[in-house]
Write a protein that binds this DNA or RNA. Structure first.
Lengths: 342, 342
DNA sequence: TATTTTTACGCAACCGATTGCATTTGTTGT
DNA sequence: ACAACAAATGCAATCGGTTGCGTAAAAATA
């Protein structure tokens, strides 16, 4: 059992008969160190298998080159793509990413925020838990000048960076697309949520599009859900199909819901898209698997991740206390596929 | 701009006129500290908004209560479920999880392993990158007594913990299922990979099942891929459908491949399962979305994650140098759905 | 050659929590 | 009332890089 103690700069210093400060600077190509020494140090460090202790550096400098990511779950395609984007950008600037899942629980979110703070992350990227109504647990970051970026599910009353899509416009576009495909009784599924007002926004877009195109707004066609699981979607769809007449279109604010509607329709012998057209949201992988292929709204997950990480890194570099916490809007598009074909 | 400096145990000590050692111990319910003091300290800590600095503790104790996870990507359903399992277990014991993606690149894997080591993770859970042929970059963990668990895509010649399924048996079961459903010309798609020999194992199971049931082994029905993307699957399927006669069954070692085969079949007017039965692998979400629903082999991702994390934590607690690095096998099952119905 | 400037490196404090050991306070026994 | 012992707390070193400041050596200038 080789119990190699970690190699430190002290070990290198001793071997080369230099001061630790010299080693430290040499490893960072500090200009006051001669090229000869730098080469010598680096070579020796390599030979001895030196790996810097991030903790020590972080403790001393009170910064860690770590970005904390706090999201509901990693298993949703949108969120795992978001992570992917964050990670790609972070890695380019040599940042490490810590990922924590709130599982949409407020309590867990509070704990994990504390844990991230405890780990002295340099910046935080967060998509709020469904349950979250209060954002006080993020003050610890704001107050200590730790850049904080909310993504997608963002609080509306918090002065910090936000990376989002324009949910209103996206909802409008989706609904307009259905209208253009000939729908006149368009249903909508929505979900209640105080802080993450994205469903409300999508609904607003839906309503406005109906108004603008003189399509009747029928409250019976709007179903309100507490969560957006497949099962909820099935229930909502069945409720819609129990109506007489059934709606001829549906704007579902998520592909899972849309897929559940398509499958429920098929089960009940309702033809998609002939009798019932559906447009989803997110462009999840399943949207291309289902038959008929699902029309949907693109949700630029990876781009959003990259944008969020870039904001953090840029902010960390400039270290100016930019009070301007801008909101970044990314584009969405209608992806017309089979499920809304005329 | 409130520039709150972080509250430390020194601040608490000063306020209460106690030594930092007392504070530190009080916060951990050390038995040598009186209940009165403990309560007082905890209350004050709470009031002052104290959050322990993980870095300082980690530096001092040379342990961080952090588990490093090094996987190809977070966007695959299997891997994101794996993470989920790891996270759930880790959280129960108050461990933090750092996730890094190798993107199936050997070079990135080497770098990130170094980064994890640099961050002094307490343990490491890894699923190897496709490219990886050499595991020397994991010695730094083994040599320093940092528990290392490989999951799913594991090296065969490395004496450390491994959590896997029995790919051979799974492949055997899948193939046997097709035979039982009446298939006699069963195709198979496989992928080359030195270290992660799981495709080879699945193929072995396929071959053995054919032999055991006196079904002809036809090399033309075995397609070898370099990667397992949807596009590759389409190519492979088309190659199979170009044969005359076409195979009547396919064991695809991944649901993406299986789905691509089903869709390709449908496009070419081949009826699934009547003319062509397919069984996949993993039980990804898409397997329940596709029409017909895909028969598949369960792959207990979350369980594997939990098991891996438990091994790490258990090992860290006992701190015995267990030389017995056991291999944990988890069960798989055939999930018979529509795509293999008689 | 003496003096100023530049270059290269060393010294030591520092970050914040932990912990072995020393010390003080409190309690029990006689 | 005093030794003997237990309980509660303090002291100070430690983990490993980082960095401001000081200084010796080398190079440039007078």
């Amino acid at each position: 059992m080789e119990e190699n103690k970690h190699v430190t700069i002290y070990d290198i210093a001793e071997r080369l008969n230099l001061a630790t400060s010299t080693i430290s600077r040499a490893l960072k190509d500090h200009h006051t160190i001669s090229d000869k020494t730098i080469k010598k140090v680096k070579k020796t460090a390599e030979e001895m298998g030196f790996v810097p202790n991030t903790l020590a550096a972080g403790l001393r400098g009170n910064k860690t080159k770590t970005i904390g990511v706090l999201i509901p779950t990693v298993t949703q395609p949108f969120l795992s793509s978001l992570i992917s984007g964050i990670e790609i950008t972070a890695q380019k600037s040599d940042y490490t990413v810590i990922i924590m899942q709130s599982h949409d629980s407020y309590e867990e979110e509070v704990n994990m925020a504390k844990s991230l703070y405890s780990n002295r992350v340099s910046g935080v990227i967060c998509s709020l838990a469904m349950e979250t109504r209060d954002t006080a647990h993020f003050h610890q970051f704001s107050n200590n000048n730790i850049p904080l970026v909310f993504v997608d599910r963002v609080p509306k009353d918090y002065n910090t960076f936000r990376v989002v899509i324009d949910n209103y416009t996206a909802g409008y576009k989706a609904t307009k697309h259905l209208i253009e495909q000939g729908c006149i009784r368009i249903a909508h599924i929505t979900a209640g949520s105080e802080l993450g007002n994205l469903y409300n926004e999508r609904k607003r877009g839906y309503i406005e599009a109906l108004k603008d195109h003189n399509v009747d707004i029928d409250e019976k066609l709007i179903i309100n859900l507490n969560s957006v699981t497949y099962e909820d979607g099935v229930k909502a769809s069945n409720a819609l199909f129990d109506l007489d007449p059934i709606p001829d279109g549906l704007f579902a604010p998520g592909d899972i819901l849309a897929v559940s509607a398509v499958q429920t329709a098929k089960k009940r012998g309702i033809k998609v898209p002939e009798e019932f057209k559906v447009i989803g949201f997110n462009n999840d992988p399943i949207s291309q698997i289902i038959d008929p292929n699902l029309s949907t709204i693109t949700h630029p997950a990876e781009k959003m991740g990259k944008a969020a990480a870039e904001i953090i890194i840029k902010n960390l570099k400039s270290s100016k206390n930019d009070d301007a916490k801008e909101i970044t809007f990314l584009n969405t598009e209608v992806l017309a596929r089979e499920s809304t074909q005329k």
